[in-house]
Structure formats: structure tokens, C-alpha cells
């Protein structure tokens, strides 16, 4: 597949099929997790809690992969011959926001681990999961787009790095990008269901209701 020929990005535009898809499927999996958390709070069925925690786990795993691939990509595109250094990259609002979002989800698992009572654990972590999902939007999507950022989508990227500022995604990229999003999401859902089935087998006696 041919890709748009861009300066600075060059062939690394193909990372769109990996890095961006990771975040897409992470958002979808976190969304599914929140739905199950709300379902748990509606009926207090422990099965829904197991679904919620495993979808959140695979979602954060994809988030960590997205973060790791983002650092590799940024290392060879944001650090250019202009005055961008590692220091200016570490100040990136997108990176800080993504780190905060992942740490909030990290706290979700810490919170779960700190309870001994199962019902209390499920109930409080379900409420926390809703908060964590709500925090995703300001930390990843809103704040980095209000302040200047090297990451595409920011208003400030006009000044610093014009090559990264493609307002709309190219149709050639779109042909691979959307199927890739679906594919990565299905892979994430598959891994999550494997984890859920393990957990359901483990808690077979508890769930017998």
C-alpha cells in the first residue's frame, strides 16, 4: 500500500496502523469495562465485575503498548534538527496526559488489590472505574488539544512541526487504518474473554447463584 509522502514522518507514517490503533482499541475496551461496571452497580452480579476488570486490564495493556510505541515514534520524528530536545518532549501535554490516564487505571488495580472483602472490592472499584473512564477524556483528549503540542491534533502544531499537522487523514491510510482498528480491537476482546473465562472457572463456586 502506498502512503502519503511527508517530510520528517517519511515511512514512519505507517505506525498509524499500530500506535493509533492501540489507543483506539484501548478506548473501546475501557468503554466496555465501564458498561460492565455500571451493570454491576445495577444488579450486583459478581460476573459483571469480572468482565469489567478483565476488559480494563487488557485496555491498560494496550495503553501501555500505545505509550511504548509512541515513545519510539516520537524519538525519531519529534527530535529533529530544530530546537526540539528531549526536554521539550518530556514537557509534552499529550505524554503527561496519557501517563496520568494510565496511572489512574494503575490505581484502579491497586485499589482492587487492597480489599479483602469481595463485594466491597467489586462495588468500590466499579465506582472508581467510572471515575477513571471519565478522567480519560480531559487527560488524553481535551487538555492536549487546548495547549500547544507536537502531537497531531493540537492547535500549536502549526508553529513547531508542520509535517505532523495533517488535519485530515489520507484516504489511502484510511483503507488500512479502519480495518486495523477493528482487528486490534477484536484481538483485545479475544484476550479479554480468555482472561474472563479463566476467572469464571476459578470463581465457579462463588458465582453459583
Amino acid at each position: 500500500m502506498d502512503v502519503p509522502h511527508l517530510f520528517i514522518l517519511n515511512e514512519s507514517i505507517r505506525n498509524l496502523y499500530f500506535h493509533v490503533c492501540m489507543w483506539f482499541s484501548m478506548m473501546i475496551l475501557f468503554g466496555v469495562s465501564v458498561v460492565y461496571s455500571i451493570k454491576y452497580l445495577a444488579g450486583f452480579n459478581l460476573r459483571n465485575d469480572i468482565f469489567a476488570v478483565n476488559f480494563a486490564a487488557v485496555g491498560s495493556f494496550l495503553g501501555i503498548l500505545g505509550y511504548a510505541t509512541g515513545t519510539i515514534w516520537a524519538n525519531y520524528t519529534w527530535v529533529t534538527d530544530q530546537n526540539q530536545s528531549l526536554g521539550s518532549i518530556l514537557k509534552e501535554p499529550k505524554l503527561i496526559g496519557a501517563a496520568i490516564a494510565l496511572l489512574i487505571y494503575g490505581a484502579y488495580f491497586v485499589l482492587r488489590g487492597s480489599f479483602t472483602d469481595m463485594d466491597k472490592k467489586a462495588r468500590i472499584s466499579a465506582v472508581y472505574n467510572i471515575f477513571a473512564f471519565a478522567m480519560l477524556f480531559p487527560s488524553i483528549w481535551i487538555i492536549p488539544r487546548l495547549v500547544g503540542s507536537l502531537h497531531p491534533g493540537a492547535p500549536g502544531s502549526d508553529s513547531g512541526n508542520p509535517a505532523l499537522n495533517f488535519k485530515d487523514i489520507d484516504s489511502r491510510l484510511r483503507m488500512v487504518f479502519y480495518p486495523a482498528v477493528i482487528g486490534w480491537t477484536l484481538l483485545g476482546v479475544w484476550i479479554a474473554t480468555l482472561k474472563i473465562r479463566i476467572q469464571l472457572l476459578k470463581d465457579k463456586t462463588l458465582l453459583h447463584d
Binding site: W73, Y76, T77
Partner: peptide, 28 residues
């Protein structure tokens, strides 16, 4: 990494994801 139109950045990203997936599946 900057040669051949930075294609090796894509390779590095793919490898990161593959290794990450393998570790995760291995843990499961």
C-alpha cells in the same frame, strides 16, 4: 533508524507490540 525513510521505526514499533503481546499471552 533514520535511513530508508525511517522504515525501521515502524519495524521497532511492530517488534515492541509483538514482544509485548507474547509476554502478555505467556503470562495468561
Amino acid at each position: 533508524m533514520r535511513s530508508n525513510g525511517k522504515i525501521y521505526v515502524v519495524v521497532a514499533v511492530c517488534l515492541t507490540i509483538l514482544i509485548g503481546l507474547f509476554i502478555y499471552v505467556f503470562l495468561i
